[in-house]
Design a protein around this nucleic acid. Structure first.
Lengths: 189, 189, 189, 189
DNA sequence: CATGAATGAGTGTTCATTCAT
DNA sequence: AATGAATGAACACTCATTCAT
């Protein structure tokens, strides 16, 4: 039930997965404990469901990345980043929960890693095609890229800096392009 | 008491702060519940104590950064990174706990941010002096740098990749130097 | 919930407030720990609730005292005493707990004192109206009266002397009438 | 050790027997936990020791009551009351602890009751000798007398009314004399 | 004699989960 | 389908008591 998933996302984001009480979620969704357990086996199951939702979004993003025709330059990179950061904005808690060992469920972690890998691969392909990539080491640098995006995005959103405005997006895009892939991007005037 | 702090670090790292049971910590320290509460007011107090320890290490690192004479090039950057990643290796959980909203104590969070800021400032100064810096935007890029180091380091250590060997250190150093500060570093032969 | 209040009264009476275990209360009420904390914030809150119940009974008694028409002689005094001792029989522990400094909650103590004062005032009025009162000192003697009733009643009930039979009631009534208020009461033949 | 007994009396009086912590007593006596258990088997043993002290004082009072030559009138009653209330001031907690079922030790309770009975007997004898006694019922009224003194004294001391001044003593003396024993005492001018 | 760090059984409290309605 | 009162296992924390120094 959407009401509950949304409430879960809200409460997890506010308090963190472990500190979140089923009671908080249920109250936030204006429903009852009974209903919660009608749709989810338990609290962890809600996290799993949210993780799947998140993974789906990431897979979609990966597909979109593969379907772009023509050159993959600064604008495209920037558009991708905006997309990715948006997903992170919604599912940050879930991503962090599965990345860290807060949840014992191995399947959730695996799904997450798979989604991440899908994106990483597509991105690597795209950038290589564009001919401007000179990654220090593919695996390491893509990992570092994702890491930075995740953590940076968290910092930005938690500092209450609000939406990712153009300035921020540009900075990140240039950092990623120049630093990780050697795209000497000066923002097109 | 050292035994307990160490055990806390171990257990927090294994299970995460919230999932960690006082009983686990006590058992890991081969001591009793009573002893735990002799030295710490409660579980959160242990986190606070560890956070202070961590912050001290970071402040020391900041000072060391300020006292380096002469040029601040690749080797110095690499040494700094090794140092920083080492601290993160020990205090990762604590850093993440205070960075995320897992702990209600505002003082802990403030101390952590202060320590981070101290490092960030010194680093910015050092790199500017070295003349090779062309940061996209100082505040943003240093923030991103710290973010990346944190998250990347976490990824590396949690994947069980073990110690930070030379290869990894070099990759990171080059990424940081080239990407964030425009230092065109090719590893000195 | 009545089951829990009653069980609380029972267990507090048996073991005293401090020695009483929530587990005892819960078992005596044939319910669970969870249910206890569903209705009461904590052990002290149960005492508070019982104190309010007790205070209500005392206020009712005070009102009844004010509504008696006609003379207030031996029979009326005796009836009042029977009523008061009955309340004490049920809520003895609570009264003692709030009279002594066993409970940190100042509000509970204040409510109790207020209820006592209400009774004392009405009683003083009634007896003065009856014209036979020559109290040594109003404040002191009413205080002493209540004190005696409380403590005496406790002694009687804890010695297992069972219900307050006619003999006991008569003795107390005569003591109070003669000693405190100078009513030369010879038991009506 | 006197230091510890005194500290025990202080702390028991402040917090009540159950709420009193051995740590409080030890700190109040400026000594250590080890020393406490050198002189007392456990917390209850300290209460026992204090109860014996208290009983001794009461037995002494009983003896003094028996050794008074000549008449036992208002002044003698008043002197006795002052003595009794003084003992209660010091040992109130202990008396209450043994009177109520707060302590499982049956011996303590028995000693206390014995001491009380000793006083009650002597007092009854003295008053009967004085020829002015017409107790309603010996057993009941003496019990009520002790009860009242105890409880009243508590009320007086806990209300912060300070020492038992002449006024209070006179009021109590007249109440007891007139009410319990029919001594028509008007304070000697 | 004196100490106080260490102990662990015991207690209050929480919260995910169930089930009769 | 929906409810929410009831449950009890699990956890944080306390404090009387011990014992090596």
């Amino acid at each position: 039930m959407r009401k509950l998933s949304d409430a879960g996302l809200r409460v997890f984001a506010e308090r963190g997965y472990h500190a979140a009480r089923v009671d908080d979620i249920v109250r936030s969704a204006r429903t009852s404990h009974g209903t919660f357990y009608l749709y989810f086996a338990n609290k962890e199951d809600l996290l799993r469901a949210l993780a799947v939702e998140c993974a789906d979004s990431l897979f979609e993003l990966a597909d979109a990345l593969g379907e772009i025709e023509g050159e993959f330059g600064y604008e495209e990179l920037r558009a991708f980043l905006a997309e990715f950061l948006g997903i992170y904005r919604s599912y940050g808690v879930v991503i962090r929960a599965w990345m860290e060992d807060q949840v014992p469920d191995r399947d959730v972690a695996r799904t997450g890693v798979k989604a991440y890998t899908a994106i990483a691969k597509r991105l690597a392909v795209r950038l290589e095609e564009s001919g401007s990539v000179q990654p220090v080491d593919a695996a390491t640098s893509v990992s570092a890229l994702m890491a930075m995006l995740e953590r940076f995005n968290y910092a930005v959103s938690s500092r209450g800096l609000g939406a990712h405005d153009d300035e921020t997006l540009d900075t990140v895009a240039r950092l990623v392009g120049q630093g990780f892939f050697g795209i000497g991007v000066s923002r097109p005037a």
